[in-house]
Design a protein around this nucleic acid. Structure first.
Length: 245
DNA sequence: GGGCTTGTTACTGT
DNA sequence: TACAGTAACAAGCC
């Protein structure tokens, strides 16, 4: 269930519980993290970094990553195997199928907030620099690169490339700088559309190319292919998306 | 029931 | 040694 905007929604829901200053009273679940370190700790802040959900305590941070199939439930439980339950005096946070990690370092030393597509600190100039440093990379791979666009995922990749009319197999070094800037801007723009639409439960309705299906012939000549490093499914329209190479 | 998928990491081999 | 490529892992939907 991830991609940056969804983690922002998770944070908003957790913020509504006003956990800052509250202590973790109990922990349960199948996780292998050290319960004793967390029990009794006071929450200092709730943050997000791309697809990472962060619960900050005094001496460390608990990082929750939902990976591909992770889910959560607030003040209720699901049928499936409970991985981590953090219980507070009057609230409960439950996570399923996540990747958990304790971060001992200062977050500012570990994360570059400027690369988080959802963050206030987002800096398009930094993204441009990083892209220009790897001219041979493909447009499809660059958007998924978490060091450049922290929080972008496969949906964002497909929709953004379609919007800016760039072929996924374009070499970024061949894309004119102004066009690259447009791409970078649109990653941010679309992510906020994603956030808005997800909240209104109309995200999938607004997919322009992602999950395009046969018979759904609004886009003539569209294709679906596994492309790029991770061979992630890519939907695109070779007739309108220009291949820079 | 097999084949997919909003993701990442640890291996492998060149 | 660095890198690209692959396997592995997870759960739920069709």
């Amino acid at each position: 269930m991830p991609e940056g905007p969804i983690i922002v929604i998770l944070k908003e829901e957790v913020d509504a519980l006003h956990l800052v200053g509250k202590k973790v009273l109990r922990i349960s679940g199948t996780n292998t993290i050290d319960d004793d370190r967390i029990i009794g700790q006071k929450v200092l802040a709730i943050k997000t970094y791309g697809k990472n959900f962060l619960i900050c305590f005094e001496y460390f941070t608990l990082r929750v990553h939902l990976m591909m199939f992770g889910t959560y439930a607030i003040n209720q439980r699901k049928e499936t195997k409970l991985q981590l339950s953090l219980q507070f005096e009057d609230a409960e946070l439950n996570f399923y199928t996540t990747s958990l990690k304790i971060i001992d370092e200062d977050l500012d030393d570990v994360y570059d907030w400027k690369s988080d597509i959802m963050a206030e600190a987002w800096d398009p100039k930094a993204a441009l620099k990083k892209i220009q440093a790897k001219p041979k990379a493909l447009a499809a791979d660059v958007i998924l690169d978490q060091n450049i666009f922290t929080g972008a995922g496969n949906i964002i990749k497909n929709e953004v490339l379609y919007r800016v009319k760039i072929h996924p197999l374009s070499r970024v070094g061949a894309i004119p700088v102004e066009k690259l800037k447009e791409l970078i801007k649109e990653v941010r723009n679309y992510s906020f559309d994603f956030l808005k639409w997800k909240k209104a439960k109309v995200l999938t309705k607004n997919f322009k190319i992602y999950e395009h299906k046969p018979g759904d012939d609004k886009i003539k000549g569209w294709v679906k292919e596994p492309l790029g490093k991770g061979k992630r499914i890519t939907y695109y329209n070779p007739e309108t998306q220009i291949k820079y190479e």
